[in-house]
Design a protein around this nucleic acid. Sequence first.
DNA 1: GCGATTTCATTGCATCCGCTATGAAATCTT
DNA 2: AAGATTTCATAGCGGATGCAATGAAATCGC
Lengths: 161, 161
Amino acid sequence: MTDQSPPPLPEFDLLGFTPYRLAVAAKRTSEALAKQYRSRFGISIPEWRVLVHLAYAGNVSVRDIEARVAMEKYEVSRAAKRLEEAGLIEKRAHQTDRRLVDLALTAKGRLMMAELLPIARAHQEALEARLGDAFEQLETGLEKLLEDIEPFSTEKQAPRG
Amino acid sequence: MTDQSPPPLPEFDLLGFTPYRLAVAAKRTSEALAKQYRSRFGISIPEWRVLVHLAYAGNVSVRDIEARVAMEKYEVSRAAKRLEEAGLIEKRAHQTDRRLVDLALTAKGRLMMAELLPIARAHQEALEARLGDAFEQLETGLEKLLEDIEPFSTEKQAPRG
DNA sequence: GCGATTTCATTGCATCCGCTATGAAATCTT
DNA sequence: AAGATTTCATAGCGGATGCAATGAAATCGC
């Protein structure tokens, strides 16, 4: 006789699945802020990441940003293109290595960041306040989770000043 | 005299910014698995989420899945469309409410899930093992972070068995 | 020093995504 | 019980994303 009843599937709890939980948490924590970035300043998350990096790293190439921030090269490239079109950053050819493109904030970009950064900071503080003690725990977990991906600049850090 | 030096920007550490860290963590933990889903089974993350839900929730509508899993209605709808085209799920009109679409795994879908679920489970276990004690901490943090979004079924739970 | 290889950045293409509008069916209102 | 409102699912459209291919410049190997 052929078996009519389907074979039982192994139990699996999606809501307890760590990759899922992290994805939801990431979306949840960035949603409100990303909406502000977009509606008030017209920038996306990849663009925001590039801007933040430029805000405290001076002139850097696409490659540098890719290495530091968890972004693919083409993401950086496209973000940079849009930011340049918006007049927020400038691209300049590198002095000695003409393959590299040096990125830097324009005055307009700096002004915008001067407005944006405190908002992000406040967001972070609100988040920490809401989590209370749980924030430390979250951090411990994230630290461990990211530990062998975080120390980006293992081989490429020399060229940077 | 005009001020030539740019105004100093407030300090901001992107690498310590929780939304950023969560995004990286989410990407990192799902990357390897998602690649397998895609290359070996041809399914995306939204599709995977729908499948998992169907695997242990029997017949459900798009609306049900939207309520349980953190997905928008149109994401579920499109995932369902692709899954139907792939022969992994079946859509049927609901008995009494013809607006609803009941989704259910096909035999083919069940077979695939029987293969997929143990892989996901092993992935979770490997992750927990790698994190060690830090896993509990991560969980505590995530729990708190998600707490007021997690209890989905507040109003719509009655219809489900 | 010159061709082969590698590195850096961008782009083409196909797909995917988010938002909004649409259509269909049920429920509410009077 | 008929019209207005709400709920459910999908489709259209513009833009974003991922991947692989391309182009340009530097470095390597002989």
